[in-house]
């Protein structure tokens, strides 16, 4: 791990610098939206967070399948890293969404927004995942139980999204498709640039967090196994 320490550190520094620059660009360079005003600036971080939240959970489920097939602890460490970082980005997504929703929709919580409701359920599913991990002592049993929870959550999410979308579509009119609140950027180029700029920064941050959390999980596993081997007096 020492060999990779410098590139990982540089990645972390690059992430902080890029996000800092993207924040400056989004706050001071892009003009306010004609309809939403300054509120649209929250979307840069909201959209980037949301993509990474869903992406992380897909990868967590894939790593969980890997664990169940190959029983290699690296898969468990990866699943944990993806799930934990995913929870972080999910919280960030929901928080930014609520901050944006209050000025634009007049409410923090919009039941009719399928993405918001789906994201909240995603958070509940993966908090359950982390709880199952926390409540299981044996490392192998923990990895196995958690893998099952991650896989069920991953197949559930598309159904959740589908059902919430239908709920809105079949039952009620598009109450939040109000033309007053649709984005109307005076400088579409700057808006897209800010969005991509922030997205790039968040990709770097996400990668850095995943790598560091994975390394930590591997160290935890190795330490746990070493402590167990020491306790029974069996050399590796």
């Amino acid at each position: 791990m020492n060999r990779a320490a410098l590139p990982v550190r540089l990645l972390g520094i690059a992430a902080v610098l890029t996000i800092g620059a993207a924040t400056w660009y989004g706050l001071f360079v892009v003009p306010p939206d004609l309809n939403q005003g300054d509120a649209q600036r929250i979307l840069y971080i909201h959209v980037a967070s949301a993509w990474h939240a869903f992406f992380s959970f897909g990868l967590a489920a894939a790593a969980s399948v890997g664990w169940l097939i190959w029983r290699n602890p690296r898969f468990d460490a990866a699943a944990l890293a993806f799930a934990e970082v995913g929870v972080l980005f999910t919280v960030s997504t929901i928080w930014a969404g609520m901050m944006w929703g209050k000025p634009v929709w007049g409410t923090y919580w919009q039941w009719e927004d399928p993405r918001l409701v789906t994201t909240a359920l995603l958070l509940a599913l993966y908090l359950g995942y982390l709880l199952v991990r926390r409540l299981t002592d044996d490392p192998v049993r923990r990895a196995t139980r958690a893998a099952a929870v991650a896989i069920i959550a991953a197949v559930d999410i598309p159904i959740v999204h589908f059902s919430v979308t239908w709920w809105r579509g079949l039952h009620q009119g598009p109450t939040f498709g109000n033309p007053e609140t649709i984005l109307n950027p005076p400088a579409p180029g700057a808006f897209v640039t800010a969005l991509l700029f922030m997205l790039f920064g968040v990709i770097l941050l996400w990668a850095w967090l995943i790598i560091r959390r994975y390394q930590l999980a591997r160290l935890e596993w190795i330490a746990e196994e070493a402590a167990q081997r020491a306790a029974v007096g069996v050399p590796a």
Binding site: L121, L125, G128, V149, D156, V160, F162, S163, V164
Partner: peptide, 10 residues
Amino acid sequence: PLLLLPVIAP
């Protein structure tokens, strides 16, 4: 219930 309810939400 904590694990079950979110999964059966749909």
